[in-house]
Design a protein around this nucleic acid. Structure first.
Length: 281
DNA sequence: CTCCTGTCCTGCCGGC
DNA sequence: TGCCGGCAGGACAGGA
C-alpha cells in the first residue's frame, strides 16, 4: 500500500475535489475492513461538511464541521476513486465505502485485501487513539532530525531497516522508501540501529527527506493524469534505485554486476529488503 | 522494555 | 489450460 508519498498524493487529490463539500449519501457496503467501521458511520457523515483534509503519517484525516475527524488508512491495497461528477459510477468489486456529495462529487474506498482502517473521534481526542498515541515524528517535519533519530535508535540492536519501519521511531515510512533511503545514505540495512554514528544518522535523515520529497513531487505531477483517466488515486510511477530490482545494477553502478550479482534481496522481519552491498556499509 | 513470529485478506505471477 | 506456492506497498497481538 501506499506509503507516505502516495497517501499525500491521495490527500491532495481529495482536497481538490471534495474539501468543503457536504456528504449527501453514504453507503457502507460491509461491516469492517481490518477493523470494524465506526458505529453508525453513514449517519455520522451524512449532512456534514468537510472542513479540511489533512494527513498524519499514512492516515488521511477528514475534519468535519461538527469537530469530528474521520481517519482513513489505506493498508496494503487500499485505493481511492474520486470524481467531481460521480453520476456515471457503477459499484465495483471491493468498493467498501461510497460517499456522494452535494456538489455531485463522489468518493469511493476500494480495498481488496481489507487491511485498511477507518476510525472516527472528536478532533480533541483523535491523536489519543492507540494508532496515533505512540507515533514518532513526521519524517518531513522539523521534529525529525539526525539528533532525534539517534536518540530514538539508542541501544537498539534491531537492524536499521527494521527500526525505520517501526512507526514509533518515525511515522510514515514503509518498505519501499526505507530501502531507497538506506541506499542513498550508503548505509547497510543490516547495521544495528543503535550503532549508527551521528553523521550517519544525519545523512540518513536528509536522504529520507529527499526521497520522500521527490516521490511526492512525482505524485503531484501525475495527479492530473490519474484524475482525467479514471479518478483513481494512490499509485504513480516513480523510479526506484533498489526496490524490487534484485540482480540488477544500482543507478550509478561502477561494479561488475556479473561478479557481484547486482542488487541483493534478503528478508528482514518477514519483509523483503533490497540493497547494494558494494555501496551500502 | 525489546525483539521476533504469526496473522489478517485477496490478487497476481511464475513454475510445473 | 489449470493448479499451487510464494509474494505483495501495513500494522498489530502475543510470546520469549
Amino acid at each position: 500500500m501506499p506509503e507516505l508519498p502516495e497517501v499525500e498524493t491521495v490527500r491532495q487529490g481529495l482536497r481538490e475535489v471534495i474539501e468543503g463539500a457536504v456528504f449527501s449519501a453514504v453507503e457502507q457496503r460491509r461491516p469492517d475492513l481490518r477493523t470494524p467501521f465506526p458505529d453508525n458511520l453513514p449517519a455520522r457523515l451524512q449532512g456534514r461538511r468537510i472542513i479540511t483534509i489533512g494527513r498524519r503519517a499514512k492516515y488521511i484525516l477528514f475534519t468535519l464541521d461538527d469537530q469530528s475527524v474521520m481517519a482513513l488508512h489505506l493498508g496494503m491495497s487500499g485505493r481511492v476513486l474520486v470524481m467531481a461528477d460521480g453520476s456515471a459510477y457503477k459499484p465495483a468489486k471491493h468498493d467498501h465505502l461510497v460517499c456522494r456529495f452535494d456538489s455531485g462529487a463522489l468518493f469511493v474506498l476500494n480495498d481488496p485485501r481489507r487491511f485498511g482502517m477507518v476510525f472516527m473521534a472528536d478532533a480533541d481526542d483523535i491523536m489519543r487513539l492507540p494508532a496515533f498515541a505512540k507515533m514518532g515524528p513526521e519524517p518531513l517535519g522539523n521534529g525529525f532530525s539526525g539528533t532525534v533519530l539517534r536518540e530514538k535508535l539508542a541501544g537498539r540492536k534491531t537492524p536499521i531497516k527494521t527500526a525505520l519501519l517501526d512507526q514509533r521511531i518515525v511515522a510514515g515510512l514503509g518498505n519501499i522508501y526505507v530501502c531507497e533511503a538506506l541506499y542513498y545514505a550508503g548505509i547497510s540495512p543490516l547495521r544495528a540501529a543503535g550503532a549508527l554514528s551521528d553523521d550517519e544518522a544525519e545523512k540518513l535523515v536528509q536522504e529520507i527527506k529527499k526521497v520522500l520529497s521527490r516521490a511526492i513531487k512525482a505524485g503531484g505531477s501525475s495527479l492530473k493524469d490519474y484524475r482525467t483517466a479514471s479518478g483513481e488515486l494512490g499509485y504513480f510511477q516513480f523510479s526506484f534505485a533498489v526496490y524490487d530490482r534484485a540482480g540488477k545494477a544500482c543507478p550509478d553502478c561502477s561494479c561488475d554486476v556479473s561478479r557481484t550479482g547486482g542488487i541483493k534481496r534478503i528478508v528482514q522481519g518477514g519483509r523483503s529488503t533490497f540493497y547494494c552491498d558494494e555501496k551500502q556499509r
